[in-house]
Structures are given as structure tokens and as C-alpha cells.
Design a protein around this nucleic acid. Structure first.
Length: 271
DNA sequence: CACGGATCCTGATGGC
DNA sequence: TGCCATCAGGATCCGT
């Protein structure tokens, strides 16, 4: 479910409300992708200072450390007063003086990990090798082109890997490549400077738009207030196999790349 | 070392 | 209360 826009919309939904609150309890459900990495009681009494985002991770800074939260494929976070008992797919809940932060994650590919600091090996293993933030000034077209020159793999896979640029998942990879007019099967190293620049701009555009519109809701995304986004209404190719391309009318094609579906238009996207 | 594939888990959907 | 195969927004680990 969550790519960068959904994670960012989630962050915006509760960051200000949880900042400054004191942690009063912590409840765990079934195991997530990784263990928490500390005794739950260690968190109690600490304050939540702020909530940041790095790629698809949320970083909850606390008085003595930080929680790294990843939503995996099916995770979502809710924040507020506890109105209902935890359901069978609620596997993490952080109780604070401002409300409770609850992770709902049916598939449990998500994770919540505690680290004493961001430079800790525990934290570095998760976020230490991530690429540049696409919406930051550090995401530079020239550097992007240069990084692509070093990759022998197809461009769609490079985007998904998150080592060059973070935050682009399966939906926005297809969407950004469509916007840039680039076939997903092009070898990254073969992209010309102008085409890399187009892709650079497309990635920023598609992600920024999705954040502005509240995130995609192709499956079950909802923000921390439980409201749905509506990016789905504007997907150009994702999940549109066989439907007419919104630009040229040719049927949208689909293929498998690395066990994931890719959608593209043979007319609008050049090899 | 860089790449491609298998893998974790549950639920929804569609064909038979 | 049908059963089975396939697919789903992620990313790590492992073999080559």
C-alpha cells in the first residue's frame, strides 16, 4: 500500500499531535517483520519529540532513541483516542498522553524497530543505504543521470530498489515512467541525459502531486484520521491493463518485472 | 559485487 | 462455509 506519498500523508496526519506527548504504554500483537529490539517498558516515560520520514520509513524521535516504523505492503497507522479494542490485525500500539498510535497490518510485512540512535547499527541496517529523497533539493537531475549510468538493470527495477532515489514504489514507478515517456524495460545506464532529466522531473511531479492529493487509495490506504486519498482517480497506466491510454488511446500493456506488475503504453513510452 | 528470484503473510477475486 | 490459483502499494536474503 504505502509508497512515499502515503507515508508522508500519514506522517502529516499525526506528527504535530503526538509531538511532546509522553509514552505511557506499548502493546504488541503478532510478530511483524522484525522484533522491536528492546523491552517495551524501555519506551514508557520517554517523550515523543518529533516524527520524520526517510524514504518509506517513519522515524519517531523519542527522548532516548527512536522508533523506525515501516508499513510494508498492507500497513496503515491510526492515531487518536482508543475507541475500539485492538483487532486481529492491529499488531503495535503506542499509548501516549496525546493519544494512541496503532499499526494495522494484515500481511505483517511492516515493522517497528527501536534504536538508541540513528547512527546505531540497528538503525543503519534499515536506513543506512537509502538513496536520495526525491522531494528534497538534494535530488539533482545531473547526479541522478550519473547514478543511472552505473546501473546495468532496467530502469523500473532501479527505481524500485531505492538505492538511487527512495520512495518510488510499484504504482508511482509505472506512473513516473509514463509521464517521462520511458519504457520500463530500458536499461538505466542507456538513458540519455535529457531522458534522465525528464524522469527526474516526472518522479518529483508524480510524488508531489500524490502527497498534495492525500495519497493513493488503490487498495486500502487511509491517513491517520481514517480518510481516504483519491490519487487512484488519476492513475494514467497503473492497474489499467487493456484500457485505453489516457493520452493516445492505445491499450495499456502489462508485464511482470521482478515479480511485480508493470503497466505502460507502447506508443507514449519509447524504448 | 551486482543481479534475479524466492520469500515472508493474509485477504480479495475470479475461474472452474 | 466450495476449492484452487493468482495477485496485492515492500524489501531482504540467498544463490549464481
Amino acid at each position: 500500500m504505502p509508497e512515499l506519498p502515503e507515508v508522508e500523508v500519514t506522517r502529516l496526519g499525526f506528527a504535530d499531535r503526538i509531538a511532546g506527548a509522553e509514552i505511557t504504554g506499548l502493546t504488541l500483537g503478532k510478530p511483524l517483520r522484525w522484533p522491536l529490539g528492546c523491552e517495551p517498558s524501555l519506551l514508557v516515560g520517554q517523550k515523543v519529540l518529533q516524527v520524520r520520514r526517510r524514504g518509506k520509513y517513519l522515524l519517531l524521535d523519542t527522548s532516548e532513541g527512536l522508533l523506525l516504523i515501516h508499513l510494508g505492503m498492507s500497513g496503515s497507522l491510526g492515531f487518536g483516542k482508543v475507541l475500539q479494542a485492538a483487532g486481529k490485525h492491529d499488531h503495535f500500539e503506542l499509548q501516549t498522553t496525546a493519544g494512541s498510535l496503532r499499526l494495522h497490518d494484515p500481511r505483517r510485512f511492516g515493522a517497528v524497530v527501536y534504536a538508541a540512535s540513528e547512527t546505531d547499527a540497528v538503525a543503519q541496517k534499515l536506513i543506512g543505504r537509502l538513496g536520495v529523497e526525491p522531494l528534497s533539493d538534494a535530488f539533482d537531475a545531473r547526479a541522478f543521470h550519473q547514478a543511472l549510468q552505473l546501473r546495468q538493470t532496467v530502469i523500473k527495477q532501479v527505481l524500485l530498489a531505492g538505492e538511487v532515489v527512495v520512495g518510488v514504489g510499484n504504482i508511482y514507478a509505472s506512473e513516473a515512467l509514463f509521464m517521462a515517456g520511458i519504457r520500463p524495460t530500458v536499461r538505466a545506464a542507456r538513458l540519455s541525459k535529457p531522458r534522465a532529466a525528464r524522469l527526474h522531473a516526472a518522479i518529483r511531479e508524480v510524488l508531489a502531486q500524490a502527497v498534495a492529493k492525500g495519497g493513493s487509495t488503490l487498495k486500502d490506504f487511509s491517513n491517520a484520521q481514517g480518510e481516504s486519498g483519491y490519487f487512484q482517480l488519476e492513475a494514467m497506466v497503473y492497474d489499467r491493463a487493456g484500457l485505453p491510454c489516457r493520452v493516445c488511446g492505445a491499450p495499456v500493456k502489462t508485464m511482470r518485472q521482478g515479480q511485480r506488475s508493470t503497466f505502460f503504453c507502447v506508443n507514449c513510452q519509447k524504448p
